[in-house]
Design a protein around this nucleic acid. Structure first.
Length: 763
DNA sequence: TCCCTCCTTGTTTTT
DNA sequence: CAAGGAGGGA
């Protein structure tokens, strides 16, 4: 996203040659969503209903019909990936370049506006954009400056509170007294002020600020707001259910001109409330924008009818939906397979075994994905896939530009390009180790703060004086001289060459070469890759502007590998075959979400499950384990309540023999259990005899064919009825009943609770 | 200043 | 269990 001029390639030719095919192939509702260009429109697009197609065609239609020129349309998305896709598709539809158009992420659009009016919000046009790491380091300094115990109240905590305020469009002045007093013992608000002040002084802003400043700009400078309001005749928004309050206010401000706001989204796929997204935005659309037209895209082109029905049946358990009825013309297909497994290892074995046999029958691995609730769950699958020699790719995880070595390298680039980039200076000053520790840094800081200087200038002054120990002085002097030299090199040599020289001469490459850890080699490769990436930009500053906004790293998804990713990362993707492991209470729905967010969070977890199921085109396989190793201890698990919420006629529920008893102990309430009920579900009505079918740590299983010994109930813990015990959270109590691993305990303070034995100790 | 050991703490993540 | 941070010792 560099400086984009509003001049553009000829598109006028299009009006004389209207592409007759633009609406071809769209169904009636989709076409309606494209044609309804005037006034506010909400397109409720269920999973797999052709949302992106509608969005891009609509944009193309607006331009091709001459309703607006390219710079008069603003189209915003959340991710760079989505933005890129939209640009590519529109370019293809109209057969022209989209260079300079306002098609991009919310943040890129705001940054572009702010670059033009930076002074109005107290920044210089060259302002830098902080990444998460910079933010946390900065916050830590501010926390310590206020003598707050950073151990008890870590930077992350403050960061998230402040971030949530920014998500709601609240500058420090706008946070109410009451709320300020409430947040982190009243410490968060003053710290928020410190932080914003510090950012201004650094001529920098964080991601949240891009929107916040844009809002301030509109609010305090009506002329600017007016300008953009008039400019943008048509507004298009992707994934509207993910917008936060700040984004909503920003859109509303822009829509006040021509009122042509079209938002596309799906309330059932809102899974980001924890980072400030407001489902309320989409639920309230008709009230917010009077006269709004609501168009529902309900014809699903992706999944088979069983998958669709299973997903719909599940999501129907949520309340407060706008409601959609997805349907498909593709009848039949396989039922959703639900499979019980013994434990995490067994689950990985089952899933990867399936993958293996699909590969053997010619299935493309790139069309298979394993979608987990949390990142750590990928480990077991990775291990198993490695054993089987099946290529895979973990999507998400540490992104390229977030890796330590990349940020360090970029830190060097930053300090060379912008001598006053204090955060970059701090980052690299003692990396690699050059004997510049806390003491030296303190001296530099002190001088810098006292005289209002950037750190590197202060450091240069210190080197001239004799206030430093000779060693530190020499070392710091050498670093500064190096920086100066690299800066000079930049004026006469190609920047990739300078980058290479810089990494060598600074000792940074050598640092990783000397490193014996297994990942060092990969890091060196990454550094080489970085230099290659660099060459694609015309200059180092141009590159830096790019990385600050475009932190994505789409691994070439070209090669044929199984995808491992979180459910969040899977949103927007689709695969022939989708495995959904870990459907257990506590894992999915996630315990923490349940504890912290109650019913609302449960519904979000359910939406996550919905997102997962609807990623599948032909086959969805849900698995759960009866026992799982969690944080180093074995825990028994109950199947996720979501399993029971899947309509029985659309699923095929199986379990290995021995895991379930032969006959159900009670009739399934809603017909949801077409087979023997898992014993661990029947636990409630028992009278004490331990009959837990789960073994303690899984015995190593010989490759291939080992008979599973039916688990026998074993007294795996010493607790007996009447015994006095202690629990970390609930305190002291007496055991009232023993039921396998579960103990019903009458706690003195907390009352009657059923807990797993491993959580209590004898008192 | 650096390195090692002990202790804590475990979702989801884009820009 | 495993990783990352903090604090103490050399």
């Amino acid at each position: 996203m560099r400086l984009m001029t509003d001049s553009l390639k000829p598109i006028d030719g299009l009006s004389t040659r209207p592409p007759p095919s633009l609406l071809d192939g769209l169904n009636e509702t989709q076409a309606e969503a494209v044609r309804a260009t005037e006034g506010p429109v909400l397109v409720l697009a269920g999973a797999g209903t052709g949302k992106t197609r509608v969005l891009t065609t609509r944009l193309a239609h607006i331009l091709a019909s001459g309703r607006a020129r390219p710079w008069q349309v603003l189209a915003v998305t959340f991710t760079n990936k989505a933005a890129r896709e939209m640009r590519e598709r529109v370019a293809r539809l109209l057969d022209c370049s989209v260079e300079g158009w306002w098609v991009g992420t919310f943040h890129a659009a705001c940054a572009r506006m702010l670059r033009g009016h930076a002074e109005r919000v107290g920044l210089k046009p060259s302002f830098g954009i902080l990444d998460t790491d910079d933010q946390l380091r900065l916050l830590k300094q501010l926390i310590e400056a206020r003598n707050i115990d950073a151990k008890k109240l870590p930077p992350r905590l403050f960061s998230s509170v402040m971030q949530r305020w920014k998500d709601r469009g609240l500058t420090p002045e706008r946070v109410t007294e009451a709320e300020g007093a409430d947040a982190v013992d009243g410490l968060a608000l003053p710290l928020y002020r410190d932080y914003q002040e510090r950012l201004s002084a650094l001529n920098a802003c964080d991601f949240g600020d891009l929107l916040l400043h844009a809002l301030t700009l509109f609010r305090d400078h009506p002329d600017v707001a007016e300008r953009y309001r008039n400019q943008f005749r048509y507004l298009l928004v992707d994934e509207y259910q993910d917008t936060n309050v700040a984004q909503y206010l920003w859109l509303r401000a822009l829509a006040q001109g021509h009122h042509n706001l079209c938002c596309v989204g799906d309330d059932d796929q809102s899974i980001y409330s924890w980072r400030g997204a407001e489902v309320g935005n989409i639920l309230r659309f008709e009230r917010d924008f009077p006269g709004a037209k609501v168009i529902r895209l309900e014809c699903n082109y992706r999944s088979t009818s069983h998958i669709l029905a299973a997903a719909s049946g599940l999501i129907a358990h949520n309340r407060g939906r706008l409601g959609k009825t997805l349907w498909t013309t593709a009848a039949g297909g396989e039922k959703v397979c639900v499979r019980a497994t013994w434990d995490g290892e067994d689950e990985a074995r089952v899933v990867c075994g399936e993958i293996e046999s699909r590969r053997a029958s010619g299935h493309a691995l790139g069309e298979i994905a394993v979608l987990v609730r949390a990142g750590f769950q990928t480990r077991e699958f990775e291990e198993r896939l490695i054993i089987l020699g099946i290529p895979y790719r973990v999507i998400g995880g540490a992104r390229f530009y977030e890796r330590q070595e990349i940020r360090d390298a970029i830190g060097y680039f930053r300090i060379v390009v912008r001598g006053d980039d204090d955060l970059a200076f701090e980052r690299i000053v003692n990396t690699p180790k050059r004997g510049l520790g806390a003491a030296t840094l303190r001296a530099v800081h002190q001088l810098a703060r006292g005289d209002g200087l950037p750190l590197s200038i202060a450091a240069a002054r210190l080197v001239e004086s004799d206030e430093l120990k000779p060693q530190a002085r020499g070392s710091l002097g050498r670093l500064l001289a190096d920086i100066g030299r690299w800066r000079e090199m930049l004026t006469r040599l190609p920047h990739p060459e300078v980058a290479r020289a810089l990494l060598d001469e600074s000792g940074y490459t050598a640092m990783w070469q000397a490193d014996r850890s297994p990942e060092a080699e990969g890091r060196l490769d990454n550094l080489k890759e970085l230099v290659v990436a660099l060459a694609e930009f015309e200059s180092l500053p141009a590159f830096l502007e790019h990385v600050s906004l475009v932190m994505d790293n789409d691994e070439a998804a070209g090669d044929d590998k199984v995808g491992l990713m979180t459910l969040h990362a899977a949103k927007g993707l689709e695969f022939d075959t989708v495995f959904l492991p870990g459907w257990e209470e506590g894992i999915f729905p996630n315990q923490r979400a349940l504890d912290e967010g109650g019913e609302a969070s449960l519904e979000e977890e359910r939406r996550l499950a919905y997102v997962g199921l609807t990623r599948a085109r032909r086959r969805a396989i849900v698995t759960y384990a009866a026992s799982r190793m969690v944080f180093g201890t074995w825990q028994n698990a109950l199947p996720s309540r979501f399993v029971k919420e899947l309509p029985a006629i659309d699923i095929d529920h199986t379990a290995p023999t021995g895991l379930f008893r032969a006959t159900p102990s009670r009739a399934p309430a809603d017909g949801a259990w077409p087979m023997a009920e898992p014993v661990h579900l029947a636990a409630a009505d028992t009278s004490g005899a331990p009959r837990w079918p789960i073994r303690r740590p899984t015995p190593p299983l010989i490759e291939g064919r080992a008979e599973r010994v039916a688990a026998r109930p074993e007294p795996s813990h010493p607790f007996t009825t009447g015994q006095r015990v202690f629990h970390q959270k609930f305190g002291y109590g007496a055991v009232r009943r023993v039921d396998g691993d579960r103990l019903e305990i009458d706690f003195e303070k907390a009352g009657n609770k059923t807990v797993i034995h491993s959580f209590v100790e004898t008192a």
